[in-house]
């Protein structure tokens, strides 16, 4: 039911954070997730970080995406 996309937290400003979805960035709210730090991976739903993702798995996904980008070029 619920579209939630992994993203990497790049910059935290108070209750908001700029996150990177893998090529596109957007400012989202950290209003419902506690103790988020820069470089964490989060799941984003409707403009909010809803949960943290384990780093290794998320990094793998984004690494594959990056490789894909290089291949696509």
């Amino acid at each position: 039911m619920c579209l939630a996309i992994p993203a990497k937290v790049k910059k935290i400003e108070e209750n908001m954070a700029v996150v990177d979805f893998g090529g596109v960035r957007k400012k989202i709210s950290l209003g419902i997730l506690s103790s988020v730090e820069e470089d964490d991976y989060v799941l984003v739903h409707a403009g909010f970080a809803i949960g943290k993702l384990e780093k290794t798995e998320a990094e793998n996904t984004l690494k594959v995406l990056k490789e894909l980008e290089e291949v696509a070029r």
């Binding site: 996309i5 979805f21 893998g22 090529g23 596109v24 990056k66 894909l68 696509a72």
Partner: peptide, 8 residues
């Protein structure tokens, strides 16, 4: 498809 477009 460009990865950034796919992600959006």
């Amino acid at each position: 498809i460009k990865p950034s477009v796919k992600r959006l």
